[in-house]
Amino acid sequence: MSDMLQIEVKVNGAQRLIDVAVHHTLLDVLRDDLELTGTKECCVVGECGACTVLVDGRAMNSCLMLAVEVDGSEVTTVEGLATDGRLSPLQEAFLDAGAAQCGFCISGQLMAAHALLSRIPHPTVEEVNEGLAGNLCRCAGYEQITQAVLMAAEGGDR
C-alpha cells in the first residue's frame, strides 16, 4: 500500500509510465500531470459527461475513477481522435453540423459518440439520444449533435 504509485497506461496510443497520487482521479492526472486538457471538468459527480474518456474502448467518466484504476489499461481522450492532424469523420461531422457551440461539452460528447458508433455503427435517433444522455450541453445543441453523429454514421467507417 502506498499513497503514490507508478502506473503503466497507454494514452492515445503511447505507452506511458506515470507516478500518480493514489487519491487523484483519472481526470486530475490527465489534465494536471499529462497536460491533456481536452478532457473537461464540470460536475465531478458523473452527471455531465464533460470528462468522458474511453478506457479499454468503453466510455467512462474520468472524474469518478482513480487514476490507479487504469493501470494496465488503454485510455483514449479527445486528443486521440484525430490521426496525424487529420480529423476523424466524427469530428468533421461535428463541424459540418454546427454541433460545437461554446464547445466545453464537446470533448465528452465526441468520446461518448465515438463509443456509441463503435457499438452501434448505424444508430437511430433514439439510440443516439440514449447514448449521449450522460453528456449535458447547456448550449443545448442536442439537435445538431445528434445530427452530427448520424452524419458520421452515414459516412460509413470512421
Binding site: 458523473g46 452527471e47 459527461g49 468522458t52 468503453r58 466510455a59 467512462m60 467518466n61 469518478l64 475513477m65 461518448a112 463509443a115 456509441l116 440514449e130 447514448g131 444522455a133 450522460g134 453528456n135
Partner: peptide
C-alpha cells in the same frame, strides 16, 4: 442506472 458512462463502471 445513470448514463452509459456510469453503466460501464
Amino acid at each position: 442506472v445513470g448514463s452509459v458512462q456510469i453503466r460501464n463502471r
